[in-house]
Simulated assay, not measured.
Amino acid sequence: MFRLIPIMLVLLLPGCFLAPGMDMQTDGDLTEIELPTMKGGQLVKEKTRIQPITADLIIEREVARRQAVNNLPPMDETRTSYRIGPQDRLQITVWEHPELNDPGGEKILPELAGKVVDDNGDLYYPYVGTLHVGGKTVTEVREELTRELSKYFKKVKLDIRVLSFQAHRVAVVGEVRNPGIVAMTETPLTVAEAISRAGGATQDSDLNNVALARGGQLYKLDVQALYEKGLTTQNLLLRDGDVLNVGDQKDSKVYVMGEVGRQQAIQINKGRMSLAQALAEAYGVDFNTSRPGDIYVLRAGDMQPEIFQLDAESPDAMILAEQFPLQPHDTLFVGTAGVTQWSRVLNQILPGSFTAIMSQAAMMGM
């Protein structure tokens, strides 16, 4: 019977191509199959290039990442002071002229006191008539009103303050405790302040993934870097109409498949996970059954697929793995060794008996 084993093995070699599980097939340095890809605004089918994970690739990607982080809207210094707008309620106090002030003074409820700026940005005041205050600072309105009242009174002294801020608002949504509208006040409203006034971020928030929508453009902010590294460039001053969306980390996972200790979906913590960390979370590469030279990262992107390959035949390649950052929804695939595929086919065809036959053959020196 043992003499038949070599013949059986030769006959079963083609079964390697029918091995259970997946195997990464390539066409040179391209994928074997065509993938949907967005090019020039059109969806086309084409093969994707497989990029080796090297030091050059990591440097190139890190430079691009830092440029993206700094791709922020320009700072408008003229907007640091509050600008009065429609529906703001102003309290105007003219000293030594009580007839010009609100009757009842401090006894009036704040929501009823003062004068409301109309939708055109105008305000009516005795003796002066209609005064356009929209878009002006409190200081500018004080100076203009003082100048106009000085035509009728001597040594006019007055004070203006905003009782109710209604004109300028931003929306804070996503993973914050109290999503909704945040009013802008005399104190310039920053990203960190807006998140704080919305109750702070929730436990499920991804502060590495905060999006700012402004003027039809979307900007990505790394608020976690602001908190942990003091990267103040991420703490932008907000403008009226801005929408701030704090991301959800529950959807930030990578998927590990192939010849690893345990195939699973792994949660990315605080927006950071390296290829080495993902392999460790999956209980490492099974070097008995895998091809360490075929570790792939598959990234679907937004119809912009990318595939990266790490050759981990040498242990120092794990330094590259630690320096290669993963992104949410990446799929990590570790290839199967050819001998493992062959063995699995034989085990399917000769269940139970195959292992025993090979053991006996080994003992007899075959």
Rank of each mutant, 00 (worst) to 15 (best):
G135Y: 10
G135E: 03
G135M: 11
G135L: 07
K136L: 12
T137Y: 03
T139N: 11
T139Q: 04
T139M: 08
T139L: 09
E140A: 06
V141R: 01
R142I: 11
E144P: 03
E144L: 14
L145M: 07
L145S: 04
T146D: 09
R147P: 00
E148R: 11
E148Q: 15
L149A: 01
S150Q: 08
S150W: 15
Y152D: 11
Y152G: 06
Y152S: 00
Y152T: 09
Y152A: 05
F153D: 13
F153V: 05
F153E: 09
F153N: 05
K155H: 10
K155W: 03
V156G: 07
V156A: 12
K157R: 15
L158P: 02
L158E: 06
L158R: 08
L158K: 01
D159S: 11
D159H: 01
I160H: 03
R161G: 13
R161H: 15
R161D: 15
V162I: 15
L163S: 03
L163T: 10
L163V: 14
L163E: 09
F165N: 03
F165L: 07
Q166A: 14
Q166M: 14
Q166C: 09
Q166P: 01
A167F: 02
H168Y: 02
H168C: 02
H168N: 09
R169P: 05
R169M: 05
R169L: 08
R169I: 02
V170P: 02
V172M: 01
G174P: 03
G174Y: 03
G174E: 03
G174V: 00
G174N: 01
R177V: 11
R177S: 06
P179T: 02
G180L: 15
G180R: 12
I181M: 15
I181N: 01
I181D: 05
I181V: 15
V182E: 04
V182C: 04
A183P: 04
A183Y: 08
A183C: 10
M184W: 01
M184L: 13
M184D: 04
M184I: 05
T185P: 02
E186V: 13
T187N: 01
T187V: 08
P188M: 10
P188C: 05
P188W: 09
L189E: 05
T190G: 01
T190D: 12
V191Y: 03
A192G: 01
A192I: 08
A192Y: 09
A192L: 05
E193H: 03
I195V: 09
I195Q: 00
S196N: 14
S196Y: 10
S196F: 11
S196Q: 06
S196I: 08
S196D: 12
R197H: 04
R197A: 13
A198E: 08
G199C: 11
G199S: 12
G199W: 04
G200S: 09
T202W: 02
Q203Y: 10
D204E: 04
S205F: 05
S205A: 11
D206I: 02
D206V: 02
N208E: 12
N209D: 13
N209P: 06
N209H: 12
A211N: 10
L212M: 13
A213F: 11
A213M: 10
A213Y: 05
A213D: 08
G216S: 13
G216A: 13
G216H: 09
G216E: 09
Q217T: 06
Q217A: 14
Q217R: 10
Q217G: 04
L218D: 08
Y219D: 05
K220Y: 07
K220F: 12
K220L: 15
K220W: 14
L221H: 07
D222L: 00
D222P: 04
D222V: 07
